[in-house]
Each structure stands twice: as C-alpha cells, then as structure tokens.
Design a protein around this nucleic acid. Structure first.
Length: 603
RNA sequence: GCCCAGAUAGCUCAGUGGCAGAGCACUUCCUUGGUAAGGAAGAGGUCGGCAGUUCAAUUCUGCUUCUGGGCUCCA
C-alpha cells in the first residue's frame, strides 16, 4: 500500500489517522505540506519531542502538546532548569529516536483505567479531568506512550524535518494563578526545503525587527533610568512621525473630522461614571492633587464627550466627528512590554463620531473607506472581523440588532469580505477589528471601529431631534492606525526601514565630493526644506567611497553626489533607491520629481 | 505580575576570583578623492545598581532596575 498516506478525512471533514482506520473509501491525506498533513506531522513531532525529553529528564511529567499556527509546543514539568542551549541536546535525542523507526500505535482504554494508569502523574490527571469522554486513546511509539486524542502519523520515520525554536514558561491551563510549566516550541515540515524557507523567514523577521532598525536609524529609544515602556522619539523618528501625523491630519479634515484635545488627566469621578474605574482601573495610573483623586487618561472618549456636551447640539450637527492624536497611559505588565508594540504611553489616532442609530451604517461606511485608503497607501492587505453581542452585554437587543446589521451592511455595500467573531464584541456594543498583513506575511491588529450606547447613556449625552425632543446619540469609537507607536513599529518592519519618500525621516543624503561643494549642498538642503523634504549632508572627512557606501546603507530614498560638474550645471547626480539606478537631473527637475513623489502620500 | 535567559566602551560582542579587551562608531592629523570600507594617532569603562562572602569581586551569593523569549493582557 501507499506508505505516503498519513491519515484520512471523512465526509464531515474530520481527520482520522491511520491507526484508527484504513478505510480506503475515505479521502486520503498524503504526506506533504497541506494544512491537514502538517497538523498531523507537527502533532507527532510534539510527541517525539516529549519522548526525547522523557529520556533526557527521567523525572519529566507532561501536560499537553498541541499544534499551533506556528508549529507545536509541549508543556511539561522537570526538576532541572531548561534553557535555549538544552534544545540542541533534545533535538539530538529526537534524531536518535527517529533512527529506531518506531511505528506509532494506538490503543483505547476506559477513562477509569486511565485514571489508574496515570494515578502517579498529576499532570496527566489534570488533562483527564478536562476530558468528558468515557474512552481514552493512548498513542505508543517504542517505550514511550502518551494520552492523546490524535491524529498521529503512522511512524516517527515521517518526522525528520523539525526545529525546536524556543523555550518559555506557560501557566498550567493558561491560568495565571496556576503552576508555571516549561514550554518548548518547535516547528516541522514535510520536507527540508520548507523548513529551511521557514527558518529564512524567521531570519528575515529578525533583520526587520523594529527595535534593531529603530536603534540603527536613530528613530526612537528607551531609557532604563526613565522607566520601562516609555518611548522617546529621536529627531529622525519624530520627523517620520510628524509626516505621518500631517498626512493623516489632512485626511481627517477632508473627511469632515474636527480636531479636539482633551486633558491628560481627569478627576477620578469621571472615570467612575464612565466605568473605567471599575472595569479598567487595574490598567490606570492614579494620582492625588489637593487631596482629590485624579486618573491619567487611558482612553480619550471622556474628553470628547465633555466637549460635545459643552454646547447644545441639534440633529443637524450629526454625525459629528471629533478626532485627536490622543496620548494615553495604560499600565501593562512588565513582562508584556515589547519595543514599540507594547508600551505604557502611546498616542492613538482616535476619533469619536456622535450619530443617530440610523446613521451608523453610513458612518461606518465612511470609516471603512478611510481605513482602506490608509492601508492601500502603505501596501497592506487587511482583513476585517465583525464581533457580535457577547453573553454579558448591556442595551436592548433591538439596538444590538440594528447596529450589528449596520456594520455588516456597511462592509457588504463596500464589497469587503469579513469574518464573524460570534460573541466577541465589547459589552457596550459590536465592533469591527482590522487585521493587516505585512510584507513578509505577518498579521497585526491595528484599527478598530466600535459602536457604543453605553457612554452616551452614562454621561447623559443628548441632542435635540427634529420633533424638539431630547434624544441620545450613539457613539462610534474608531482608530485606524491604532497607535502611532505600534503602527510605526509595524511600518518599520514592513518596509525594513526603507520608508517611502512621503514618510521617510530623511529623503535625501547629499555627498559633496570635496569641501568646495559643501556650499551647494547647503543650498540644496535649504531648497529641500522649501518643498517639505528633510535631507542630510554627509561631509565628514572620510574617503568618497566610504561616504557613498555609508550613505547607501542609511535606507534613504535618494543619495545625491555633488561635484564640480554639478555645481557648474546646477544639477545633481542621483542614486535612486527605488529604481536602483544612477542618473543625473537638474536641480529643478529633481525638485519637481520629489514634489510629485510626495503627493503619493495624499489620501 | 509569573517562568527562563541576559546586562562589560556610543553599537556589536570577547574575557577573567588578582592592572579591563576587539571590531565598528567618536576626536585630531595626513589624504581633496567622481560612485560601496585610504592611512596614522588619540580619547572613551565605578564591567546596570545596592548589599553580602573573600586578603582581594567585573567574576561567587542575595536583592533590585532594565532587556529578551513566552504565559496572561492588549492599540
């Protein structure tokens, strides 16, 4: 028979392994890199790893070893401390085991028998306590056996192409209060080439790491003495950020948004009314001023609500769109901090739109158009998720109905596909989350659109309707980038630091050949500022070759060489990063080209 | 916050219970060069911080701050 069959799929799409059936009328799953095959291979590789760990650490006790998006892991407990360097010996042991070519067998026992069999293994008992079935399957390879629902590959012989990637701690069952187990992550593929390609992707991701590039390019920094998770923007990073802010500012104004700005902190009572004090208090920084408690804002909504309430509003004012680059502080656990991706102080591109329930659909449609423009600008593919009413929710079902349907209609009308996250909404309303995919295929959650009936109610927000009665508006919270910090982090990795001209912190580096050419370079730099291009002059006492090499390494769109010829002709000798070409233009032609290229950043 | 691993020059990293090291970057000088690393000299460190063990600690121990990989959480 075909040795390459590693499982079957039944008519319900369920995967059944070869240990369970050899019914050839089922659809076979052949050994390869299909999602189903990989799932089986990785699951079995997790077991293989457990077997190796079991041989190396005889006191090891195992919890669960599932597959995940990026491979597999196994959680276990050992007396020894396991570090990265131990992964090599575990891999070595796994390879030894493969050489024995053990068949992977399966047998069934009752749950009662399993309870007896694993009586001395508290972790397996913990696993069993989570299983309701009366029958338990056990998989066995050589002398190693493990309680598992499968499916598994027929033989360890099929598990050659793996790599253990990291070791970490993980709570038993994901419970913060439970014991911390050791977790080892790994990945495997059907062939060597795919494994190699994956490891190359990981290498590429490492090269693009925004913390590394951000440091090299001097975009931003963190300072131990000042505190964790508090980013500092250095001149180059601040230039980039200012460009992004400026592009977005115009984009908001064109779309009818009004800029507003709320204070950095408010009396704690405001946060009590909003519900933040009770629901979000653990993440808030509180302080006391003149014996009164204040809270530093973790969100911008209250400020916008107070501004809305300050003057009477008519139905004619709706929808009313307020936006703010709102600085917020949120306490994140120290272990969660991660470069610009997770910080304790950040700025949201935040907006709150006050509208009637009937207007939700068109307002959301506008926002979706806005999101689409921004994501297209940066060449991001994206997906949308609509999250519906959770079990614990406030508000009438009818209002949930109309607003959820409005979200769906808005996306359907715009021909945008989305997935439904059933019950994933906030307690105060449904939402759309935007997940973007970067240049090397990684996904990031950035933008979010949330419908809210809760805060208008709590703060007594109202407007005068056509019939001269007071009515309550709906509030739509939305962010497109999410936060400037995270988005710039993502952009940095997306472009590997080679930002397009319209946000590049430095658009041009001028390299004068000799001192006599510096004056012209200064003139050019000044002219550049006139058309909103930041440039730098590299006139250090290094050899010309070295200066060109260093300038080229700066990830700047244009390197421009200035010599006698250029000074005489008022021209520039260009090295164009985008076209990877060298050519000459007059100064005027160059400025026209740059100005034109800057307009690519208009949305 | 929890588990594991780290912290040595501006950066990347060697190294040692007994005077602190390299490459790059930096400063000065020579070189004034037309397209990817010219040469020489110099400066730079409380070996993250605080205690403890020791004749002696950058090295061993404890605590602490920060960083990394996860868990958890989230923009």
């Amino acid at each position: 028979m075909d040795k390459m069959i590693i499982g079957y799929k039944n008519s319900n799409g369920e995967v059944i392994d070869t240990q369970t059936t050899n019914d050839t009328s089922l659809t076979p799953i052949t050994y390869g890199n299909s999602p189903e095959a990989l799932n089986i291979i990785r699951h079995s590789t997790a077991h293989l790893m457990a077997q190796a760990i079991n041989e190396l650490y005889t006191n090891a006790k195992f919890f669960v070893g599932p597959t995940v998006d990026e491979g597999f892991y196994y959680d276990f407990r050992v007396d020894e401390k396991i570090g990265e360097e131990d992964l090599k010996s575990i891999e070595q042991k796994m390879k030894e085991i493969i050489k024995k070519k053990a068949i992977i067998e399966k047998y069934i026992i009752t749950k009662d028998e399993a309870l007896v069999k694993f009586a001395n293994d508290d972790l397996k008992l913990a696993v069993l306590s989570r299983i309701n079935d009366t029958e338990i399957s056990i998989y066995k390879q050589g002398d190693f056996e493990d309680l598992c629902r499968g499916p598994h590959a027929p033989s360890v012989n099929m598990l050659h192409n793996f790599k253990l990637t990291r070791v970490a701690g993980a709570y038993l069952g994901g419970d913060e209060k439970a014991e911390m187990l050791t977790r080892i992550y790994g990945i495997s593929f059907a062939d060597k080439e795919s494994l190699k390609a994956h490891m190359l992707m990981v290498e590429e991701a490492k090269k693009r790491d925004h913390r590394k590039i951000g440091g090299e390019m001097e975009l931003f920094m963190f300072d131990d003495e000042s505190g964790a998770g508090l980013p500092f923007w250095m001149p180059r990073g601040a230039r980039l950020r200012a460009r992004l802010e400026s592009i977005l500012h115009t984009a908001h104004r064109i779309r009818g948004y009004e800029p507003v700005r709320g204070p950095e902190m408010l009396k704690a009572d405001m946060w009590r009314i909003s519900g933040h004090y009770a629901c979000y208090g653990d993440n808030m920084y509180l302080t006391e001023i003149d014996e009164q408690e204040y809270g530093i804002k973790p969100m911008n909504c209250i400020g916008h609500i107070q501004i809305f309430k300050h003057t009477p509003k008519s139905y004619r004012d709706l929808p009313l769109k307020y936006y703010e680059y709102g600085v917020v502080h949120r306490h994140e656990m120290s272990g969660a901090l991660h470069g610009l991706f997770r910080v304790r102080e950040f700025t949201q591109d935040d907006a709150h739109i006050f509208c009637t329930p009937e207007q939700i659909k068109s307002v959301v449609l506008d926002i979706v158009e806005f999101v689409d423009s921004v994501m297209k600008l940066f060449d991001f593919k994206y997906k949308m998720f609509i999250s519906t009413k959770p079990d614990k929710a406030i508000g009438d079902d009818s209002v949930w109905e109309i607003s959820t349907q409005s979200l769906k209609d808005a996306l359907d009308d715009n021909n945008l596909s989305y997935e439904i996250d059933e019950g994933g909404g906030a307690f105060y309303g449904p939402k759309i989350d935007v997940k973007i995919t970067d240049a090397i295929g990684r996904e990031w959650q950035c933008g979010t659109i949330q419908v809210d009936f809760n805060l208008p109610e709590r703060f007594g927000v109202e407007y005068t309707a056509e019939d001269n009665t007071k009515k309550q508006p709906v509030m739509i919270h939305r962010a497109i980038l999410g936060s400037f910090e995270r988005f710039i982090g993502v952009l940095t990795e997306h472009y590997a630091g080679e930002f397009p001209l319209f946000i590049a912190p430095t658009g041009v580096i001028f390299v004068p050949i000799a001192d006599t050419h510096v004056e012209y370079a200064n003139e050019l730099k000044k002219a550049m500022l006139g058309i909103n291009i930041d440039s730098e002059i590299y006139d250090k006492n290094d050899s010309l070759n070295k200066r060109i090499r260093n300038a080229e390494k700066q990830r700047v769109p244009y390197v421009v060489i200035i010599g006698d010829e250029e000074v005489a002709n008022k021209s520039v000798a260009i090295r164009d990063r985008r076209t990877k070409e060298q050519y000459n233009l007059t100064q005027d032609e160059f400025m026209v080209q740059l100005t034109k290229q800057l307009t690519e950043g208009r949305i």
